[in-house]
Simulated assay, not measured.
Amino acid sequence: MAETARYIDNVIDDGASWYAVRLFTIRQEEVRNFFTEHGLECFVPEQYVDVEGCDGKPRRVLRPVVRNLVFVKQSVEDKAFQKIVQETDYKISVLKKSKESREYALIPHEQMYEFRLMCNPEVTMRKFLSSEEARMKAGDEVLVKFGPLKGMSGRLVRSSKKYYLLKEVPGIGVMLKVSRWCCVPMEEK
């Protein structure tokens, strides 16, 4: 419980939007460090997995959920960020608003704040989805009124006879188990 509280305390909603950076390299940690060295905050969704240690015993380690995405907080102007991206030796691409557009697609701070909260590695009743899988899930837009997810919004979807709150950002979606009785349609806020 203390680790969950510590994680939540580190997720700050400061009103800043986020870039989604797609990687064409397996060096995700190096790309994250590159942006961090340039004074930019990064986020990579992670989850605990069991691996066999050197002694043959299982141990839990944090691993990235996806290997081809890094989210970077917009703390500099687009031109400055573009210059930083051009300086990298890694093959990366910042998601754009559309294929024809040169403007970066920014993830609004509210959406990214809730997404980061939902990515807490201590939460076990959670599923990660690709963007395509998330789009295929039908569900109504809801606001959670009660329980530990109170105040969060997303789509209420059903999977394996259970209800989940689905939150999507470019490149990935996350679903957290929720009781449908805790949710109200968005227009009833």
Score class of each variant (00 low, 15 high):
Val11Asp: 12
Asp13Ser: 11
Ser17Asn: 10
Ser17Gly: 13
Ser17Ala: 12
Val21Asn: 04
Thr25Ala: 08
Gln28Gly: 14
Arg32Pro: 01
Asn33Gly: 10
Phe34Ala: 06
His38Lys: 13
Gly39Cys: 09
Leu40Tyr: 08
Phe43Asp: 15
Pro45Asn: 13
Tyr48Leu: 14
Val51Gln: 15
Glu52Asn: 11
Glu52Thr: 06
Cys54Asn: 06
Gly56Met: 01
Lys57His: 06
Arg59Thr: 07
Arg59Asp: 03
Leu62Asn: 10
Pro64Ala: 14
Asn68Pro: 01
Leu69Lys: 00
Val70Lys: 06
Phe71Ser: 08
Phe71Lys: 12
Glu77Ser: 15
Glu77Cys: 13
Asp78Leu: 07
Lys79Met: 14
Ala80Asp: 06
Phe81Thr: 02
Lys83Pro: 05
Gln86Trp: 04
Gln86Lys: 03
Thr88Tyr: 03
Asp89Gly: 15
Ile92Asp: 01
Leu95Ala: 11
Lys96Arg: 15
Lys96Leu: 14
Lys99Cys: 05
Glu100Cys: 13
Ala105Met: 08
Leu106Gly: 13
Ile107Lys: 08
Phe115Ser: 12
Leu117Ala: 10
Leu117Tyr: 09
Leu117Gly: 04
Met118His: 00
Asn120Arg: 02
Pro121Cys: 13
Phe128Pro: 01
Leu129Ala: 05
Leu129Cys: 05
Ser130Val: 01
Ser131Asp: 06
Glu133Cys: 04
Ala138Trp: 01
Gly139His: 13
Glu141Pro: 02
Val142Gln: 00
Val142Gly: 00
Val144His: 00
Gly147Ile: 00
Pro148Tyr: 08
Gly151Thr: 03
